[in-house]
Amino acid sequence: MLEGSSSIVLVMTDICMPGRMDGLKLAQVIWLRWPLLPVILTSGNRSIPDGMIPPHSFFLRKPWTLDALHQAVRKYLTA
């Protein structure tokens, strides 16, 4: 779906997901293929060292407020 498409402008994923791929691995796959696509990672169980997140992406610790989510999304959609 992303081949030649610009319809996805932001991805948000929880770090803890069922299955073999967690949210951090998903983000790394995204960054390899689309290095400028911002990813908002969220988790209530762990944090991420700053060096693992590209400058155009963000870690949002749970529980987050709607205002915090709104600010994070607006930051990337207006950049």
Rank of each mutant, 00 (worst) to 15 (best):
residue 2 L to D: 10
residue 2 L to A: 10
residue 3 E to S: 05
residue 3 E to Q: 13
residue 4 G to C: 06
residue 4 G to W: 12
residue 4 G to H: 13
residue 5 S to L: 10
residue 5 S to F: 01
residue 7 S to M: 05
residue 8 I to K: 00
residue 10 L to P: 13
residue 11 V to S: 05
residue 12 M to T: 14
residue 13 T to G: 00
residue 13 T to E: 04
residue 14 D to F: 00
residue 15 I to H: 01
residue 16 C to T: 12
residue 16 C to M: 13
residue 17 M to A: 06
residue 18 P to E: 14
residue 19 G to F: 12
residue 20 R to P: 09
residue 20 R to A: 13
residue 21 M to Q: 13
residue 21 M to T: 13
residue 22 D to N: 15
residue 22 D to E: 10
residue 22 D to P: 04
residue 23 G to E: 09
residue 23 G to A: 03
residue 23 G to P: 08
residue 25 K to A: 14
residue 25 K to V: 07
residue 26 L to T: 12
residue 29 V to E: 15
residue 30 I to N: 03
residue 30 I to G: 05
residue 30 I to D: 05
residue 30 I to C: 08
residue 30 I to S: 09
residue 31 W to N: 08
residue 31 W to D: 03
residue 31 W to P: 04
residue 31 W to Y: 06
residue 31 W to C: 05
residue 34 W to N: 07
residue 34 W to T: 02
residue 35 P to E: 11
residue 35 P to F: 11
residue 35 P to N: 10
residue 36 L to R: 11
residue 37 L to V: 01
residue 38 P to N: 08
residue 39 V to D: 08
residue 43 S to G: 01
residue 43 S to C: 04
residue 44 G to A: 09
residue 45 N to Q: 11
residue 45 N to K: 02
residue 46 R to L: 12
residue 47 S to A: 02
residue 49 P to C: 00
residue 49 P to N: 05
residue 50 D to K: 12
residue 51 G to E: 15
residue 51 G to K: 06
residue 52 M to N: 08
residue 53 I to T: 09
residue 53 I to K: 03
residue 53 I to W: 07
residue 53 I to Y: 07
residue 55 P to L: 02
residue 55 P to R: 06
residue 56 H to V: 07
residue 57 S to I: 08
residue 57 S to F: 07
residue 58 F to N: 03
residue 59 F to E: 01
residue 60 L to R: 08
residue 60 L to T: 07
residue 61 R to I: 05
residue 61 R to C: 01
residue 62 K to W: 07
residue 64 W to T: 01
residue 65 T to C: 06
residue 65 T to H: 08
residue 65 T to K: 12
residue 65 T to R: 11
residue 66 L to E: 14
residue 66 L to H: 08
residue 68 A to F: 01
residue 69 L to I: 07
residue 70 H to R: 14
residue 70 H to Y: 09
residue 71 Q to H: 07
residue 72 A to L: 10
residue 72 A to N: 06
residue 72 A to P: 03
residue 73 V to C: 14
residue 74 R to T: 11
residue 74 R to N: 13
residue 75 K to A: 14
residue 75 K to Q: 15
residue 76 Y to A: 10
residue 76 Y to H: 15
residue 78 T to A: 05
residue 79 A to Q: 09
residue 79 A to D: 11
